[in-house]
Nucleic acid binder design. Structure first.
Length: 239
DNA sequence: TCATTAAATTGTT
DNA sequence: AACAATTTAATGA
């Protein structure tokens, strides 16, 4: 799967609609002045499947949020084994680590399907960080939760049982704090999940059905519903 | 709003 | 990887 070259996001940026702004969780927490500033500087862009949101080495210009769609975060696909670090469902905001250090991006973000992405310009990000306590609280919480995610991911990668890997990956995608936009219904096809977990679609299909039998999820057309998040986190293959 | 058709997704081999 | 079955989305009366 080769990424489709495309113009940088900033050249396709448009102003967000009211409904799109309403879906941004941290906006509501800001003081009125800060909230107005954020609203005015946020830009939106729509992308097709396979496009890149940011590339390794590019200067960091935005703090990104996924409004709708599905992304994956990975290392350079050219050099060495391609590693998908994590899937990114709607409601996620990411890149703050890079922005904080004013470094270039350290990973590629690619859309798995047609997606709508919001961007908060780096300058506004630092303004808010400098004076808004609620904003800091959100970012801090975000960092803390994600740290837990990566630790869990280290364990998941060592597992070789496909069913278990799918279960753990799903549990990560349904993380209620990091990804409030997901709710209990995750819109993801089995094909997309395969790309994310690194399994064939057939194997994902098989894994999902055993998870369904175990009562942890309900498979739906074009997505799935989580019935037992804790169970997914703990899932181990029954012998 | 309903019926028809195309496209996407899932289930099976 | 290919195929059939199923579900959704799009189209036009």
């Amino acid at each position: 799967m080769s990424p489709i070259p495309s113009r940088p996001l900033r050249e396709r940026a448009r102003t967000p609609g009211a409904a799109e702004l309403a879906g941004i969780p941290w906006l509501a927490w800001l003081e009125p002045d800060d909230q107005a500033m954020a609203r005015n500087s946020i830009v939106m862009a729509s992308t097709g499947p396979g496009e890149q949101i940011c590339r390794i080495g590019r200067p960091a210009t935005y703090w990104f949020g996924l409004v709708d769609g599905l992304l994956k975060m990975s290392n350079e696909p050219g050099a060495g084994a391609p590693i998908t670090f994590t899937g990114v469902p709607p409601g996620a905001w990411f890149g703050e680590g890079t922005l904080l250090k004013r470094e270039p991006y350290r990973y590629n973000i690619e859309t798995l399907r047609k997606s709508t992405v919001a961007g908060l310009p780096v300058d506004t990000f630092h303004d808010l960080l400098a004076r808004s306590i609620p904003f800091n609280r959100f970012v801090l919480n975000q960092l803390n939760e994600r740290l837990g995610q990566f630790i869990a991911a280290r364990e998941t990668d060592r597992l070789n049982d496909p069913d278990t890997r799918v279960a753990r990956n799903l549990a990560a995608l349904f993380h209620p704090v990091l990804y409030p936009g997901v709710g209990s219904l995750l819109r993801i096809t089995q094909q997309e999940l395969g790309y994310l977990v690194g399994l064939s679609r057939q194997r994902v299909n098989e894994a999902l059905r055993s998870l369904q039998v175990a009562g942890l999820i309900a498979i739906e057309y074009g997505g799935l519903r989580v019935l037992d998040l804790e169970g997914l986190r703990r899932y181990e293959r029954p012998d």
